[in-house]
Design a binder for these strands. Structure first.
Lengths: 217, 217
DNA sequence: TCAGTGATCGAACGTTCGTTCGATGAATAG
DNA sequence: CTATTCATCGAACGAACGTTCGATCACTGA
């Protein structure tokens, strides 16, 4: 049972003893790496770039991550894990279907507005992970997709069908496109707070382009 | 006036005399490169990969493209140019606002369904271009954005306002998200023809999640 | 106090990368 | 027919990459 080759060691990487402050430094490395990856892409970001940005030596970086892919895996895994916790808590709160949908949309947007670099690194570097690491992150992603799809299907199908309709599942995928594409162009200074962006998106999805007119100038 | 350093030589690369079949081979190289870039990403795709996939030598590749970035530029420029021609022709055809909107949505989806690799290379490798090459492609992208936004604004604002409303511009960006995200998960065998996907998307955008109910099972 | 180990480092290894060079067929214009 | 240009190639260059190694410090538990 070797620690480096044990197949299920992906999650419990930090189980061995560490000195105080090590976890914080690891988080700092991941945050800096996310910024670099968001700016230049994962392949174009070298371990030397990361080591320079975070202020430790190249060899020292390998004390925290056994490989470059492991670094990206940790980044994606922690981000999705945190998003899922946040959104599942939001989905569990009481309220009408519309209210739950609205809270999830705004929850997604505000979460990634606070983690813009992580969003880029998670969205555009999907296939930079391989094998078990890819599957583990993909499982999280699927779980999040199912959460959102169930809420969309409640809205579209009226909560009367046992299984989601094909159109509802497609609509959920369309909505994911809106949610994630926002970060291709959004900036708070040009577009105002993300919460209002979420309100506009909810209005579009609930009522269509002609809308209720309630949000007019 | 050196051909390699002249600033405006980006478009008219093929102005010098070529032998018969050269243009076809150039297109073939770009198509193969698009497949590789879509599969592995631009940075991870080496010139050696491209040369092997297309069956010419590494040095021979540099007869067609002066650099790796020029190859990506040609790929993106030609793709957007072709998309713009197609969609501007569609937008010019007669019909109601709803019909024009529907034709453009389906036009976008079917164009990239036929050019899936090019879509990935154009969407996820934006910032792999630099300087003038980036600006040239970005100008095409903006032109396409304005075309779509004007049609969305006609629908949302009822064609009565001289300038597009903020909400209409945001809605157009949301719709771009749907349109482009489709290719993250779409496959014809699992989801059926892209035309129907477009119909469902148009219904969602026009009437919202509760919709008209006309497309029910 | 002192062994053990967590944390960090400079230097190097082997590989792959984008690009260039000089040479050689193959087509074409005069 | 011949000079020119297009098209193609093998080989190489220098740089950058991910990763490893062995050696130090600096804590920490007994």
């Amino acid at each position: 049972m070797n620690a480096t080759t044990r197949p299920n060691a992906l999650i419990a990487v930090r189980e061995r003893r560490t000195r105080a402050g090590t976890q914080e430094k690891l988080d700092h490395v991941l945050a800096s790496a996310a910024d670099l990856i968001a700016e230049k892409g994962f392949e174009a970001t070298s371990m030397r770039d990361v080591s320079a940005a975070v202020g430790i030596s190249l060899a020292g970086l390998y004390h925290y991550f056994e490989s470059k892919e492991e670094l990206l895996y940790q980044l994606q895994y922690r981000t999705f894990r945190s998003l899922l916790e946040t959104q599942e808590a939001i989905a569990a709160q009481p309220g009408t279907r519309e209210e739950r949908f609205r809270r999830l949309i705004i929850g997604h947007l505000t979460f990634f507005a606070d983690h813009a670099s992580e969003h880029q690194a998670c969205t555009f570097e999907l296939k930079s992970l391989t094998g078990e690491r890819y599957e583990t992150v993909e499982a999280l992603r699927r779980r999040y997709y199912r959460l959102m799809t169930s809420v969309v299907a409640e809205l579209r199908d009226g909560g009367v069908t046992a299984t989601e309709s094909k159109e509802a599942r497609h609509a959920a995928l369309f909505i994911f496109g809106m949610l994630n594409w926002v970060f291709m162009w959004y900036s708070a200074s040009r577009y105002g707070p993300m919460e209002q962006m979420g309100e506009e998106m909810v209005d579009l999805v609930l009522h269509g382009l002609r809308g209720t007119g309630a949000e007019g100038t």
